[in-house]
Each structure stands twice: as C-alpha cells, then as structure tokens.
Design a protein around this nucleic acid. Structure first.
Lengths: 147, 147
DNA sequence: GTCTGTGCAAACGCTTTGCAGCCCT
DNA sequence: AGGGCTGCAAAGCGTTTGCACAGAC
C-alpha cells in the first residue's frame, strides 16, 4: 500500500519543496515535511511533535500546518477522533492522490484505500480484514446562496 | 427533503421513546428529543443548549447525548467542523435512515442527501446548487488484529 | 428509599494567540 | 536590516468530571 506522497523526503528535498511553494526553509518546516513524508498514515500534531522529540514547540507545528494547508501542501483528515490528522498532498496535481482511510475503532490503526468507487471500497476493505464497518461520506461546498 | 426522523415529536411522544429505550423521562431528555426531532439538520450541543434557552446546563446535554448514543438513538456526525453534531436515528431499524450531508463552507448551511450511491450523489448535489465540492469518505471498523 | 439525573465549578485536551527575541533571505 | 519564524505562557473552545442536591421510579 503506497504512501500518500510516494517520496520519502530527505532534508534537502524538503527544503526544495518549501522553496517551490514559496515558504522559508526553516528547521521546523523541513523536519515536519520529512516526518510527514515518511508516514504511511495521516499524523496528528501531537504525533508529529513526539517524532520531533520536543525539538520545537507544539504551537509552532500548529502554525506551520496552517501555512502548509494554505498552500495546499497538505490535507486535513478527520477520522472521527477529537483531533485532526494531516497528510502530504504533494501529488495532487497529478490527481494520483485521491484516496480515503480505514481506521480501527479499537487500536486506531489506519490503512489507506486508493480507489474511489463504492463497490471497490467494499471489496478492498473486507480484504484488509476489517469487520463491523461503518462509513461516513460527507460533502462540503459553496451553496447557491454564497456563490 | 425529509427530516432524518420523519416524526416531529411532542413531549408525550418523546417520553414514550425514552421509555422504549429504557431511559427515564426527565425534562431535559424530553426537551432534547423534541428539539432534535424538529431539526432538519444535525445539531451541535451548543445549538441544542440555545434552543433550550439555558433551561438546563450544557454539561447535562453532553451527558444525555452520551446516553442516547449508547442506546443508538442518535448519530454523531462530523462535518469538518471543530465540534460534533447529532441527529436522531430512530428509523435505523427500517434501514430508511442511511444518508449523508452537504455543508456550505461559507455559511454552514447543511442539506441532507438521501441516496447512498456515488453517481446519484454527484447529480443530486449539483441540483442543490453547490459548487467547489469536496467530499470525504471515511471508514471505521475493527481490524483483524483487534477482532 | 434508592438510584439516576442535574447544576455548578473545575479540569481536560486540542488549538489559537500575544509577545519578545531569533533566524532566514 | 527587515520581516518571518519561534518559544513561552496564557487563553480559547468544546468536552468531561467530581460533588452535592434534586428528581424519577
């Protein structure tokens, strides 16, 4: 199962990504990108903070996530927990990145699902060994009043 | 577009529902059920609290929502906001209740979508006048390790 | 009368913000 | 040099919890 980014970035590559998106190459931003690019599943801010061994303040991570999101470098993912998760979205231009997740309600293990078709979903998920499945399909958009 | 419950409950009916699910007929529980049954869209705890004009403490509402959820009387809905919404799920047995939502990212207006099929979804949503659609389809379940 | 439900107040976890100093360009 | 970035501390918000009292059965 592929990583959402496909590339495990090293520090130099992370710096180039930042430059491409018009952001400064700070230590914290580089470290966050490296951590995200090595994760197979979306990470919470707390998880990123732990990965960085308290080398930076958690509020800085929140601020950087806001900047990354603004630049569409990451996706914010909500998996029914009481916090957000984030994953890199660097492949969005190629339209290769659209996917969804399965999370275990017991242990919170998260698996990726690459195909976006309901029939395929059901087959793939049962292959993954998940039971007692529940799903939520929610939309946001700009309504006629607001556009 | 139908209400998720179909029945607007009065106080007596709400009391009967509570009895059916083995819960006490307290003023607060009855009021919450009446408010939820009259709403076309899922409500947050804060919205319910406002509807009740501070006649009860907000922590009591949280506690009651937990009980209702335990009894599967309500669904907790996450629409990408930083709080949960709740809707009645009294028709679940008839399997008539499965549906999803569209929320406007500007004004938070929420519309219901009754059919659960991705092709139908796209047609229905464009008919509703929504633009710049984004969707999330997320699954939870019990993974092979945990079951 | 017993058990459950409630209001109040405090605490919790995640997230945001103000400020002073530091680092990137 | 100048503006963005950071750590720290405090506050914000939604939510949970402890306690003493009131209400349901």
């Amino acid at each position: 199962m592929k990583n959402c980014c496909d590339h495990k970035l090293d520090q130099t590559q992370a710096g180039e990504v930042l430059a491409n998106f018009g952001l400064n190459r700070t230590k914290t931003k580089i470290s966050i990108l490296v951590v995200l690019s090595h994760s197979k599943a979306p990470l919470s801010v707390v998880e990123i903070h732990k990965s960085l061994k308290n080398k930076c303040d958690i509020s800085t991570i929140f601020r950087n996530m806001a900047q990354f999101k603004e630049k569409n470098m990451i996706h914010e993912v909500n998996l029914g927990e009481d916090f957000s998760r984030f994953e890199l979205a660097l492949n969005d231009r190629k339209n290769e990145a659209h996917h969804h997740h399965v999370r275990c309600r017991e242990c919170s293990t998260i698996s990726l699902i690459e195909k976006c078709d309901l029939d395929l979903f059901e087959k793939m998920i049962s292959k993954l060994g998940f039971k007692e499945m529940e799903h939520s399909l929610e939309f946001t958009g700009i309504c006629s009043k607001c556009s």
